[in-house]
Amino acid sequence: MTMTGLTVSNKLQVTKEVKDALDSVVHNAGWSDAEIIEMTIKQEWSSKRRTPMNGLSTEEILKAIKDGYQVKAPKFSTGSRPSDAQVMDLVETYQAKRKEDTFSYGDGIADGIRFALRKMNLNVEGITE
């Protein structure tokens, strides 16, 4: 059971690959619940898209059909704050790599640093500001 805000979800937590596999058969007119359960228990899914379902237990496939399913949130833990030296090293690496030719390996590293910081909403002088 997961809690999000004030709501409680009994949905099965699965990987993106399992969700995609389940999406292809659950609530699909071509597959009955009984067929889905049988194929999963016997681990007879053979198409590349559906083989992730072979790893589900009987309880999990029943829960997925009854209560639904969703991609589990990635685990995230915060470490210690980076030291000034680590931040400076990142800035220096970024500045050196961004000077390389466009579409080069180094240019890609610089883009990756900037992209990751922006995605995490972190502002680092010399990179994102």
Rank of each mutant, 00 (worst) to 15 (best):
R50G: 01
L117A: 00
I65N: 00
A73S: 15
E92L: 15
E60Y: 04
I36S: 02
L122E: 08
Q13E: 15
T93G: 04
G112R: 14
K119Y: 00
A34C: 00
K48S: 02
M39L: 14
R81S: 09
L62S: 03
R114P: 04
W45I: 04
V71S: 01
V14R: 06
T40K: 14
H27T: 01
G112D: 09
S77G: 04
E129V: 09
N10D: 11
E35D: 15
N28R: 12
K48I: 01
N54Q: 04
P74G: 08
V14F: 09
M88H: 10
A73G: 05
R98Y: 06
K16E: 13
Y94F: 15
S46A: 14
F103L: 12
Y94W: 13
S9N: 15
V26Q: 02
L12P: 03
M39S: 13
G68V: 11
L6N: 10
A64V: 01
D67L: 03
S83L: 11
V14K: 06
I65Q: 02
E100D: 14
L22T: 03
T78R: 15
I65V: 00
V124M: 03
E59T: 04
K66W: 00
D67I: 00
D33R: 11
L90I: 13
M39A: 11
D101K: 15
T128A: 07
L56S: 03
D107A: 15
N54M: 04
D20H: 04
R118P: 00
I109W: 07
M120Y: 03
G79L: 10
K75F: 10
T15N: 07
R118M: 08
T102K: 15
D20M: 02
E60T: 02
M120F: 05
S57W: 08
G126L: 09
A64L: 05
K99D: 07
R114M: 11
A34L: 07
E125G: 07
I36K: 05
G5L: 08
K16W: 03
Y94V: 08
I37R: 10
D20W: 01
A64K: 06
S57G: 13
D23S: 05
Y105L: 12
K63C: 02
W31D: 01
T15F: 07
M53T: 06
M120C: 05
F115Q: 11
M1N: 12
F103H: 14
N10M: 09
S9P: 10
S77H: 10
A73V: 11
G55D: 12
A73F: 02
T40F: 04
M1H: 08
L56Q: 08
I41T: 14
Q43T: 10
W31Q: 05
A29T: 10
L117V: 07
E59C: 04
W31E: 00
Q70H: 12
Q95G: 03
T78D: 12
F76W: 10
E125M: 09
N10L: 08
V26M: 00
S24C: 06
Q86M: 14
S9W: 05
L62G: 06
K66S: 14
